[in-house]
Amino acid sequence: MAGSPPSASPLAPQPPQPSSVASGAVTDASAAAAAAAKETRARDDAARLAKAERARVAKARHDAALARVAEADCVAAVAQAERDAADARLRAALARADLERAATQPLPGSDDDTSDASGDGDHVSVAGDATHLRDALLQHEAAALINLHAQAVAVQNIRLLVPLTLDVSSTFYGRWRESLLHVVGRYSLESHVLSDVTAPTSPDWVRMDCVVRTWITGTITDALADTVIEPGNTARTSWLAIESQFRGNRETRALHLDAEFRNFKQGDQDITTYCRKLKSMADALRDLDEPVQDRTLVLNLLRGLNAWDYYQFDDLLTSEERTIRKKVRGIMEKEIALIMAVYLEKTVSI
């Protein structure tokens, strides 16, 4: 009808009801709270796991430290036991020496005793003082030897003392030999590698020979050990086998090394590496009883230098190498220049 209000269309959007809006807001808030709670729990779990991992690592380190302490205590106890046994042997040896000395004294009332009594009393006193002094020195030396051997037994890593590992193809046998001799001499064990005298019935000698054998094996590669080490060898036998390996075919090795030394060129190496390798070859030839004279070393160094490095030599040398440079310059001025002058004169005349 004309006076009635227009009716709403059934397809027109209805305004949101207040109750549905509030319900949606509550749902979003609940979801956000749940997500926040979940994130908090995840952080707490991660923190607990990290704390547990730190505790586990700390416990592992603590246990490892305790194990090392126990191992060190065990080694110290063994060394102390060996030292006590050596002290006991020393006391027994001194007691036997006293008994033997007493047996050599003349009996009271004998002719020797009478003649001695009638002799010079001061001479007897001086002789007795010398004997006591000698005994005291021997006892001090024995105690020092026992202490050194105990320290040698306690060495755990020989490569800290001998930082060279000898291989079949190594060219530094001489330096390895000197380094090992310094170590065995430091602990008064050089007789185990330099002397053919053995004492297989002495527990102390056998023990220290095992120590030296272990040091030798620990400073060579497996390939070299397979070649020179045999079961039951003494330290002296292993030492001689290694010496034979590097010096037995000395002439052949010296021939090949000398050829390599004289034909060695710098190439793409820097000047420091080139000089170091050339010096190493010279040292190896010296170990083979074929020493290289300084003049020969300098001439070979100059011969193998690249042209640029030859003219820029001073800019690349250390203070030690500059000293070599001065020797080079002296040889060039005193000897090479004269030879070149004669050569040029002959060339011009031709």
Rank of each mutant, 00 (worst) to 15 (best):
D73H: 07
V124D: 00
S115A: 10
A117E: 15
T114Q: 08
R96D: 10
C74S: 07
A70Y: 01
L99A: 10
S118P: 00
D111T: 05
A88D: 04
D113Q: 06
R83D: 00
R68H: 14
A77D: 08
A52H: 13
A58L: 07
T114S: 00
A70K: 12
R54V: 11
H62V: 02
E100C: 03
Q80P: 01
L94A: 15
A70M: 01
S125I: 07
G109V: 15
E71A: 15
A79T: 04
A76L: 11
P108K: 06
V78M: 09
L49H: 00
E71W: 00
R54Y: 06
C74N: 14
R101Y: 12
R56Y: 04
A102T: 14
R89N: 06
A86W: 00
H62F: 11
D112C: 06
S125Y: 08
H62C: 06
A55S: 07
G119H: 08
D98Q: 11
S125Q: 12
D120Q: 01
E53I: 06
A60R: 15
L49I: 10
A102S: 12
R68V: 13
D120S: 07
D87T: 09
S118V: 10
R91F: 04
T104Q: 14
R68Y: 09
D98L: 14
Q105T: 02
A92T: 08
S115D: 13
T104K: 13
A92E: 13
A86S: 09
D73E: 10
L66D: 06
V75Q: 14
D63C: 05
R48M: 05
D120I: 05
L90P: 03
V126K: 12
A102W: 01
H123L: 15
R101C: 02
D120L: 07
K59A: 14
A88T: 10
V78G: 07
C74M: 06
A86C: 03
D87V: 03
A52W: 08
A127K: 13
A97Y: 11
D87H: 04
D98E: 13
A65Y: 11
L107W: 01
V126G: 03
G109M: 06
G121P: 13
